[in-house]
Amino acid sequence: MRLRDWALDDRCYAVRLGASLMGVHLPTITDAAALETGPVLEIDGGCLRGPADILQRLTSLPEVSRDWHLGIGEERRDAWAESALEQLSHLRRAALLAALPTDGVPPSVFRLMTEIEDRLSDDRLCDRPWLSGRHPGVADILLFPIVALSQDLEVPLDLYPAIRNFIRQFKALPGFMTMPGVPECH
């Protein structure tokens, strides 16, 4: 098993982060193509693409705790979180590769952050600490790079208290790891 990885890509980070949190040893090989395609997991003689599918595959490995699976009756939000990560990834690449600095936060970023904030805020009032329910799951791992790296798009986090709360509790998880642009927890 091996990850075709680009260290600065947000979707690749989601997979490395997930492996670290789940206690999976995941060797990586640097592959510049991953900046475009996102992470690719070489496994069982084949290739698996898409951060959500890869993370779900990791949760099924024998060494991974059942806690990373959804509880009975819990809503699956992986597809929503993956689509949000794709959006952020696209916007972030556009901002980081732009020839000239852009002025202000683009409206599409505000829309994305609002959607995430609404969901986290409602969850909190319903005593649902994680997107995935009582324990963090694949959807939470996909969400973290979005909200943490939103700083690359200069999103002011004072406007999003539920997102701040999510970032704080996520960073306290055992096995949490950073990437450039995501500061260490203290």
Partner: peptide, 16 residues
């Protein structure tokens, strides 16, 4: 500037 619950014990938060 914020809800009390959005600044939990032993944390700091930005406001403008």
């Amino acid at each position: 500037l914020a809800l009390g619950m959005d600044v939990p014990s032993e944390t700091a938060a930005p406001a403008r």
